[in-house]
């Protein structure tokens, strides 16, 4: 084939409905099968085996014993799950409320001098390396050398607080850092949501002297709710996955007070190398995340269905 013929040949392949779908999807499907489908099947299989990389014994089929151990063992999954969901619910609620409030505050500041720099400073926590943030916050929280204790002691005359060493406080101290990192994300989502409200409708509402609260529910919420819901869902998912922020701060301790599901799985699989048990644990997390994905898709489709009706 002469070089000049090539574009035409490729073009012809793209004109056939079957081949063009195949060509466009082939890369993504290849990636997906190699890095996801095969490993997931591997994981499912392994969850029925007793397989420890440190014992040197060949894997042994034990049926559902791994799952039974996870639910009934000394460190039952229920404790980790309830701690994780407390973390998710408290964190996401706080971040959404504060983030949305800040979003509304920043909404009317189009003419602010240095707005772009101010927003960059505000968004900076969320692009910081979580490992570095966690490590440095251990210093900020330090009972002897930390800034926070200095403020508490000299400013308010309080006794030194061991933020990360006290099992009652550690969980909330970690949650505070998580909120500091991710409140700006909810502000970003709020700004995006408010940006999707058509200006014409807002002006119309203003001319008609619609009271502010009704304007909020009728115009702003109507247009912005889709993006807000997306933001809350993304934050819920990421919060459920929290790992590398906590490891450098507490490693899940003191005791088990900051041990979320991701930390426990990380410890069992890559420190103790209990591969069978960890696979079963991962399968359970997979089921939970499939349930969360379904909620996500349901919300997205609500919008699509509504558009079809309109």
């Amino acid at each position: 084939m002469s070089p000049g013929m090539r574009p035409q040949g490729r073009g012809r392949l793209m004109d056939n409905p079957r081949t063009r779908v195949f060509i466009l999807l082939a890369p993504v499907v290849t990636f997906f099968v190699v890095f996801n489908t095969i490993p997931t099947l591997w994981l499912l299989g392994l969850s029925f085996y007793n397989h420890s990389l440190t014992s040197g014994m060949p894997p042994e089929f034990i049926g559902f014993k791994n799952f039974v151990a996870i639910f009934n063992g000394k460190n039952s999954i229920w404790f980790d799950l309830s701690r994780t969901f407390t973390f998710v619910i408290c964190g996401v609620t706080f971040q959404t409320l504060l983030g949305a409030a800040l979003g509304f505050l920043f909404w009317g500041s189009k003419n602010m001098p240095g707005r772009r720099i101010a927003l960059t400073l505000l968004f900076a926590p969320m692009v910081l390396t979580p490992v570095a943030t966690g490590t440095f916050f251990r210093f900020i929280y330090d009972p002897t050398f930390g800034v926070l204790n200095y403020i508490a002691r000299d400013g308010f005359g309080m006794a030194p607080i061991d933020f990360l060493g006290n099992p009652k406080i550690a969980f909330w101290a970690v949650l505070a850092v998580d909120s500091w990192m991710w409140t700006p994300f909810m502000t970003l989502m709020t700004l995006a949501a408010l940006g999707s409200v058509p200006k014409a409708e807002l002006e119309a509402a203003e001319i008609d002297r619609v009271p502010y609260l009704r304007r909020l529910s009728l115009v702003i919420w109507h247009h912005g709710k889709f993006i807000m819901m997306l933001g809350i869902l993304l934050r819920t998912i990421d919060s459920f996955k929290t790992l590398d922020l906590i490891i450098p701060m507490t490693k899940g301790g003191p005791g088990q007070s900051t041990r979320l599901v991701a930390l426990e799985l990380n410890k069992q699989s890559f420190e103790s190398f209990n591969m069978g048990w960890s696979s079963a644990y991962a399968v359970l997390l997979l089921l939970i995340s499939i349930a969360m994905t379904s909620v996500f898709i349901y919300v997205l489709n609500l919008r699509r269905r509504k558009e079809a009706e309109e």
Binding site: I38, P39, L243, A262, L265, S289
Partner: peptide, 18 residues
Amino acid sequence: LSIRMLPGPAVILPVFLM
């Protein structure tokens, strides 16, 4: 999307073995 929803260690565990 469901890949993105899974905690990191659960994603990487089988990939590690592979």
